[in-house]
Design a protein around this nucleic acid. Structure first.
Lengths: 135, 135
DNA sequence: CTAAGACCTGTATCAACTACAGAATCAAGG
DNA sequence: CCTTGATTCTGTAGTTGATACAGGTCTTAG
């Protein structure tokens, strides 16, 4: 891959980053991505910087950051205020919320497992699952 | 608590079940809750059966079932077709999806932890977090 | 040059609620 | 009985993070 400035259409950018074309337009609408220059006919023309930024957003989404959290990070980047410390702090906060979600889901898993175990699955008249669910 | 038929206002039902009043109206709109009788003035009047059904819905929501999954269970109940086996099957399926979510979150957690660990948080010029995020 | 494909815009949809505005009703105290 | 303040009524809009149209325009390969 050479490093000169590519001119990427929206579809090409989508294919290169794995982000749905409509999603790119959506990110532009909510100002997460900048408005790119346009061709004479009005089509968006992206370059490698757009691709880089979009890949960052995608990676963060995969890690479960909300768009607002990502916006926060990108604002730091855009202002040149990004520091190792700050990003680490944001990541730490995010880890906490991920751990909380895991804990919540584990509790749900335990409850469901107990419920299912209590039930033989056979023709028991009173199903403990339904009972436990209070119906 | 006595067992005669109570006449509950929406607000009272909400307070008794812990379900937001607006949510009750929403459940009625999407036909998860039946249309209750009305007072002369047009206000909804609920009874204990409504309360029971609503508590079932709430419990299932807490366990992460979607409204459509709950609708499926309630349809079985409404048709008198509910059986231990069927409910157990639905619960089993749900457990699988919960476990998948936990696995996904754990992967996210590990990735984030690694990222944060690689970063000293001090004045390192190149932040490995930002690097790892490709920006 | 033409025709197929990609792109343009604005709007609508999804889940699962929540929140409003403005009018009507209800319940409790005097 | 009447007032007053709280609740409820309706319909509609907003939330998050996209995705999916319709109907028209542009680009690009052959």
């Amino acid at each position: 891959m050479n490093l000169r400035k590519h001119r990427l259409s929206r579809g090409t950018l989508a294919a290169e980053t794995g982000v749905h074309p409509e999603t790119i337009r959506y990110y532009e609408k909510i100002q997460l991505m900048p408005e790119p220059p346009r061709s004479d006919g009005g089509h968006r023309v992206y370059d490698d910087q757009h691709a880089q930024r979009l890949r960052f957003i995608k990676r963060c989404r995969e890690l479960g950051f909300t768009l607002e959290e990502i916006r926060g990070m990108l604002t730091l980047v855009d202002r040149g205020e990004v520091s190792c410390e700050r990003v680490q702090h944001l990541a730490d906060e995010h880890i906490s919320s991920v751990r909380q979600k895991i804990a919540d889901l584990r509790k749900i898993e335990r409850t469901l497992k107990n419920l299912v175990q209590q039930c033989s699955g056979k023709d028991v008249p009173e199903c403990p699952i339904i009972d436990a669910l209070q119906l």
